[in-house]
């Protein structure tokens, strides 16, 4: 039982880690805290559902179509809603992403309805016995895809030209601009990547949870994950997400009702009290 809860917590933690990852990437490059990440994830899951189940597109093609669509979707959000606001106070940016989240949620409700769908996303749920513990194959799938995705992103940010220019932009926008990096294009690309990562998280999440217009609320738990790992740190987001997932899963079994839903937030407040810079965080001093 204990190990099963650990593994299902790890799987859930991977989802949190992916959502947190998408949002930390956007935050690092553009300084926009994206409160709509969870809702973008929801849209991704619904688009995959639509292509796969409603239009019967072959599996690989359907996933590819979803990812391409989501990349464009992320770019459009950035271009239409956020770029005109560059230079406005932080408050305005946050409010816009919150508004995008609400808007996506209600529009998704209008398009796909308010009922809960079962959507296995092509993953078969069968028990796998491993070292005497019975595990769900879906949980193993989720962990596998997460590891591959993180590896791919690591390669992208360290080995490709675009990845390195995004990295440069997140270190210093002005310097990157002066070095001839198209900062606007970087912004577009990072939103595309953020949306793709969110869509993958959504596709992985729907078999273990549900597919519903409200599933974006789960994405809000990426914030405690990011704070726990150190706000703005990519490895921190992953580790933080996994810790949150596992403790939530354990709290669901060993603590009374209501604790499972609030574990992430209780951890957040404890982190703020004890070690506000998080696990991997470094406190930055501002030069005037």
């Amino acid at each position: 039982m204990f190990w099963q809860m650990i593994v299902s917590g790890l799987a859930m933690g991977c989802i949190y880690a992916l959502i947190a990852l998408g949002f930390v990437l956007i935050y690092k490059a553009t300084e926009i805290v994206n409160f709509a990440q969870g809702d973008i994830m929801m849209v991704g899951a619904f688009v995959a559902y639509t292509t796969l189940i409603l239009f019967h597109v072959p599996y690989i093609l359907a996933i590819l179509m979803t990812l391409v669509f989501m990349a464009l979707f992320g770019m459009v959000i950035e271009r239409v809603l956020l770029r005109p606001l560059i230079g406005e106070p932080v408050f305005a940016m946050i409010m816009v992403t919150l508004a995008v989240g609400i808007l996506l949620r209600s529009v998704a409700g209008m398009i796909w309805g308010y009922e809960t769908y079962r959507f296995s996303a092509g993953m078969v749920d069968q028990p796998v016995r491993f070292a005497g513990v019975s595990l769900s194959s879906i949980h193993l799938w989720i962990m596998g895809v997460t590891v591959i995705l993180i590896g791919a992103l690591y390669f992208f940010f360290n080995r490709t030209k675009m990845g390195i220019s995004i990295e440069a932009t997140s270190q210093n926008q002005l310097a990157a601009f002066l070095m001839g990096i198209g900062v606007k294009r970087v912004f577009s690309n990072i939103w595309a990547i953020g949306a793709i990562v969110a869509a993958i998280a959504g596709i992985l999440l729907s078999p273990i949870q549900f597919l519903n217009y409200n599933m974006g609320y789960i994405g809000l738990k990426a914030f405690p994950a990011a704070v726990l790992g150190g706000f703005g740190s990519v490895p921190g987001a992953i580790v933080g997400g996994i810790i949150i997932g596992v403790s939530e899963s354990l709290a669901g079994v060993y603590l009374p009702g209501g604790f499972k839903e609030t574990t992430a937030w209780i951890i957040l407040i404890i982190v703020l009290l004890i070690r506000p810079e998080g696990i991997f965080g470094i406190q930055q001093q501002k030069r005037v």
Partner: peptide, 16 residues
Amino acid sequence: GLQEATYGLVLILFLR
């Protein structure tokens, strides 16, 4: 969801 959608839309339009 009309009311929530209006919240979102109104927010975006005002901020912009």
